[in-house]
Each structure stands twice: as C-alpha cells, then as structure tokens.
Simulated scan of single mutants.
Amino acid sequence: MRTLIVDDERLARNELKRLLEPYTKIEIVGEASNADEALTLIDQLQPELLFLDIQMPGRNGFELLSAIEGKTPEVIFTTAYDEYAIKAFEYNALDYLLKPIDNERLKDTIQRIEENQSHPEVHVHSEERAGKVLGADDQVFVKDGEKCWFVKLGKIRLFESMGNYVRLHFDDQKPLVLKSLNNLEERLDPITYFRANRKHIINLNWVEKIEPWFSGGLLVTLQGGDKIEISRRQAIRFKELMSL
C-alpha cells in the first residue's frame, strides 16, 4: 500500500518509519513536513494511505484533507492530542493514533488496513453517513472517558441498555456511549443486529447456542459466554430470521 507520512517533526517521521519497517505491505513512497508539501506529493505520487499529523504550521491536517482534489487516500491520524478524535471520525479516518505511538496499537491498525483491502468498503461523507444504515463492515468511533476506539461494528457482539447509555461489548472492552437503544436500533442493519428484548441488541453473527426458555422465549449464548434472553414476542421473529 503506497504510503505518505505527513508530520512537521522530523524525529516523529523517522520514528514512524522505524515502526513501520516490519510491515512489508506498507510501502513508504514519501514524506512531507507540512500541508503544502503533502498536497504536491499526493498529486505526484498518488498514495493510497496517509499517516497524517493534525497540528502543523500553516494548514492543519483537516485543512489538508479538505484541499485534496480528486480521490482522497485512506487516513490514519497521528497526533499528541486526543481532543480531535471525534472530528477525525467525521473524515472517515481508519484510525487515530496518539503519540508516542504504541507498537501493539500500530499492529492492530495495520491489521485493520489489511482487512479493508481484503473487504473494500464504500466510504461516505459524514452528512451521508448520518442517515446511513450501518452494517458489520462499518467502522464507528467510540469514546468513553479518556479512552477512545475505532471499531468495526462486526466486532461488537452485544449492545446493552444502561438507562440513558448503551454499553458496547467487543473484545474485552465494555465502554458506555450516550445513546438510547432505540436510537441505535434505527441505525443498525436488521439483518445482522437483532433486538432481543427491551435491554439488548445482539449481533447474530456471534450466536453460538440457542435454547428454549420460559414462557415461549429463547436463551441465546454468544461467543464469549454472554447469555441473553429473547422475549416470547421477539422469539417468533428470531426463528424466522435464523430459519429455525
């Protein structure tokens, strides 16, 4: 993947190049110290991926992206500041890496890039995204306190209502987001995400075991061990979806 590094700090560029050395699919074709240099190189080199700093002399990283004519490369933001994470999501960033860049975090990012190459996605602008039904391959930004993630929806096995919040279950993480379960249900692809009861939406791709339960309901076990009751009313729909 043809890659351009854009950062005003030479030491930061050199460190990132060192970290990227083990990843043979990442071909660094150039580097730039500011937005103007980057625009010229993007036009000349046609990179597929940018590792992009945000705060730089002159135009910042967001202004750089807005100035690109034609197809915009995939973007991974690299910055020492976490306050730009939400805005980065609006630009469809693949990821948001905080400096100093952690090697394991970078490894996860490269794996995501390789997955995207194997299963290319259709990227949409933020205003189109707001009304878009989200499926397993869509990536979302999640922030809980000081922690933030870019995570593919397909990795989220369970959405759990917690009052005015929803707890997301993915990997070994369980962050809370300020959303209602009803609001999320409207945005999620009903082919993949199923409203099991008033408190839970499950990812059907994570269903491991199904058992009869009280009063005509069902008990579903997800990969990882979560056990979720499907109400009698929803069990009828569930059986239709799962062709039971």
Rank of each mutant, 00 (worst) to 15 (best):
L158K: 03
E127H: 07
A136Q: 09
E186L: 07
V122M: 03
G131Y: 05
L168R: 06
N116W: 08
D137I: 13
I113R: 04
L176G: 03
D171F: 10
N103P: 14
L106A: 14
L134Q: 06
R167Y: 02
F89G: 06
Q139N: 06
H125E: 03
L181F: 15
Q139C: 15
R105M: 10
Q173A: 14
L181D: 05
G135L: 02
V151F: 06
W149C: 08
I156A: 00
E115A: 15
T109V: 02
K87R: 14
E90H: 02
I113W: 07
K179T: 07
N183M: 14
S118N: 15
P100N: 01
H123N: 12
A130R: 13
A85R: 05
V166G: 00
L184I: 04
N182E: 12
L176Y: 09
D108S: 13
K147S: 01
V151G: 06
K87I: 09
W149F: 11
N182M: 12
T109S: 00
L181Y: 02
L176W: 01
G163K: 02
E114A: 05
G163M: 09
V177Y: 07
K152N: 11
E186C: 10
R167F: 09
K155F: 00
A88H: 11
Q173Y: 11
F170N: 02
E114I: 01
A136I: 07
K107D: 08
H125Q: 10
I101E: 02
R112G: 12
Y96I: 06
K87M: 10
E114G: 00
L94G: 10
V151C: 01
Q139E: 06
K174G: 01
K179I: 08
E104L: 13
A85F: 11
H169D: 04
F159N: 00
V140W: 01
K87A: 12
Y165D: 11
D138Q: 02
F150K: 14
V151D: 09
G163D: 11
R129H: 15
I110N: 05
K107L: 13
R112S: 12
E160V: 02
V124E: 07
E128C: 13
E121D: 00
L158I: 00
A136N: 06
R129T: 05
R105V: 09
D144C: 03
L106Y: 06
D95Q: 09
L134D: 04
V133D: 00
I86Y: 03
F170C: 08
W149P: 08
Q117M: 12
S180K: 11
D172C: 04
G145M: 14
D137Y: 07
G131M: 12
V177T: 11
H169C: 10
K107T: 14
A88N: 01
M162V: 05
V140Y: 04
P120W: 10
L178G: 07
L168H: 02
V124Y: 15
E146W: 08
G135I: 01
P120H: 13
A85K: 01
K174F: 02
H169F: 13
N182V: 13
Q117F: 00
F150Q: 04
K147D: 08
I86Q: 10
